[in-house]
């Protein structure tokens, strides 16, 4: 069945003929809009009446103690977990709750996992190749050939993430930090409108962290970026707006300084039994 459909898809042309911007309508407001979202696992409310709005081109940091629901929130946005109630909109046209993971990815939402997940048996180059934004249906993928355009794009990203010298290496032998970079590179290849980045600097050296901060800052504007991070120093270095999650809902929102002085946030981080990041 899928096979026939993919045959029917054949007339769809390669991605470089598709307009670069995904058809996300942001004229009427934010690019990502979560309203009254709740989800529970066996009675445990992981997300509780969460409301969150991300503007187009914004760089948003999300912090919160362990178990605050950060990863679950990402799961909901990317279609991995279905919420029990609430609505999630991408632009004003796409209801994300009606779509599955590949569809959401094709709409232009890219995600970097908490634990770096790259395809270890493939080379760095191939990892980026698979991530490239292009027709990802079956038949074109089978016939796909390396074109100059794809090659140039991959090389550009390899340079950006500093893995050019390792491009023919298997991703499995990369260090933890290098895998993080590779995954970010894969995100870039996807040309997403919205990047969800889960703990991008875990396991990175100070220097690598700085470069990551630079990269994320340079992405903002063209893309919307949501960063979940534990490292407060890093958050401070990139954040314009910070959202604090606690027990599945938004506790505070605003500039880093404003949030850091909020007594409720201080209590959650210092007075609570959770870890202080």
């Amino acid at each position: 069945m899928s096979f026939l459909q993919s045959l029917a898809d054949r007339d769809r042309v390669f991605d470089f003929l598709v307009p670069e911007q995904s058809p996300v309508d942001v004229r009427h407001g934010p690019i990502l809009y979560l309203e009254d979202v709740s989800v529970s696992f066996d009675g445990f409310k992981a997300i509780n009446d969460l409301n969150l709005t991300i503007d187009d081109g914004e760089l948003r940091c999300i912090i919160g103690p362990n178990g605050a629901g950060k990863t679950t929130m990402m799961d909901i946005i990317t279609g991995k977990t279905r919420p029990d109630q609430g609505s999630v909109w991408f632009g004003s046209r796409h209801n994300l709750l009606t779509k599955n993971e590949p569809e959401i990815a094709r709409l232009g939402i890219g995600r970097k996992f908490q634990k770096p997940t790259v395809f270890e048996a493939l080379t760095v180059f191939e990892n980026l190749e698979l991530a490239m934004a292009m027709d990802k249906s079956l038949w074109p993928t089978l016939k796909a050939r390396m074109t100059g355009e794809v090659l140039a794009r991959i090389e550009e990203v390899l340079e950006t993430v500093g893995l050019a010298s390792l491009s023919r290496r298997q991703a499995g032998i990369l260090s933890h930090g290098q895998k993080q970079w590779l995954e970010i590179g894969m995100l870039l290849m996807q040309r997403p409108r919205l990047l969800l980045v889960d703990e991008p600097v875990a396991g990175m050296t100070e220097q690598e962290m700085e470069r990551t901060a630079e990269l994320l800052l340079s992405l903002a504007g063209k893309h919307s970026v949501v960063v979940v991070e534990h490292d407060m120093g890093f958050v401070r270095s990139i954040a314009r707006t910070v959202t604090v999650l606690h027990q599945g809902s938004v506790l505070a929102e605003g500039s880093m300084d404003k949030v850091a002085s909020d007594p409720r946030v201080i209590e959650v981080y210092l007075g609570g039994d959770e870890e202080a990041a």
Binding site: F3, E101, P102, A105, F119, L122, L130, S137, L138
Partner: peptide, 17 residues
């Protein structure tokens, strides 16, 4: 084979493959 859900998040309809 190595990371099914990652592939899905890249936009591939894994089940068709």
């Amino acid at each position: 084979r190595d990371a099914e859900s990652r592939t899905r998040f890249l936009g591939y309809r894994v089940e068709r493959y």
